[in-house]
Design a protein around this nucleic acid. Structure first.
Lengths: 153, 153
DNA sequence: CCGTAATTGCGATCAACTCGCAAGTAGCAT
DNA sequence: ATGCTACTTGCGAGTTGATCGCAATTACGG
């Protein structure tokens, strides 16, 4: 299993395809080809991929897998806590392994995505909790703004 | 004209429908019924309305106005700096008068929207600029998280 | 009151999902 | 091995939110 953050993890963070497949079986699900290949693609590649991107990569290895199956499997993996999605503003949602999720800064001019550390949001998170009782999740929605290259022009 | 923030405003922030209509005419545009009614609806109601919401309200006063015209007029008003849109995560974009725009905290469980002050983002904005040269725009994308009611459950 | 360019209504199209349903299949129990 | 049965999937249709081409309409300077 993946590193457990804190004394007891609510959501599992498995390190391998087979660990996830075992989790699926343990909860009454089935280890199908479409799930195995989707997981291989998720563990194998970079983050920041849309459902359509993942669907294309899955189809390259298993041509019969339909995009609706990819959506359904992503939803299920998300319910299990293995995968998360994030909104980047315009355009489709991106999916990542939950263990690799991180906040994003996205330029509203050129679309450049900057990979930000969680610490950047420490002050905002504490203040929002104190002022509004609101627990910020900095990874689920990107932060919009203008990158340095676009600001220079 | 509306309050000018700083020594010289790039974007105008008019206070009335007729001021905007004058701006449109001054740049070669026309003061049509669909534009007048859309502006009346924008100035008259609350914020946080989708294009479809605005389209319904416009249609209540001018039934022949098509939703595609509402989208086109919103885009043009946005180019003029009179209107802005914001992404709230799932669901459609919301439009507001630029002069009334503000950041939002949105609960990913129940969808509750909290109206946040710009100051909440002061530290994040300064740090992002220093660390990444990135100028944060806290109004364009909402901040996701969990509200206090949902956290209690 | 005319001419002309800006604008509009309409329907088609698109992108990103979502869903119903019948056919297919993983995995447990013989 | 073989059946059973519930879980999954492929497929296509449907939905939502937004965009676009185009011919008809209209604002407004002269």
């Amino acid at each position: 299993m993946g590193a457990v953050h804190g004394s007891h993890a609510i959501l599992a963070e498995p390190d391998t395809v087979d660990e996830v497949l075992d989790m699926i079986r343990a909860s009454g699900g089935r280890a199908t080809t479409s799930r195995r290949v989707l997981l291989e693609v998720l563990f194998g590649g970079s983050g920041h991929r849309t459902a359509e991107d993942l669907g294309r990569e899955v189809a390259a290895r298993a041509p019969e897998v339909h995009i609706s199956t990819v959506y359904r499997n992503l939803d299920e993996l998300e319910r299990m806590g293995v995968v998360t999605h994030a909104h980047m503003g315009h355009g489709p949602v991106i999916y990542q392994l939950a263990s690799r999720a991180h906040p994003h800064l996205i330029c509203e001019r050129c679309g450049t995505r900057i990979h930000a550390p969680d610490e950047l949001f420490g002050h905002l998170t504490r203040t929002a909790l104190r002022s509004f009782g609101f627990a910020v999740d900095p990874r689920h929605l990107a932060i919009s703004g203008v990158c340095s290259q676009c600001a220079d022009r």
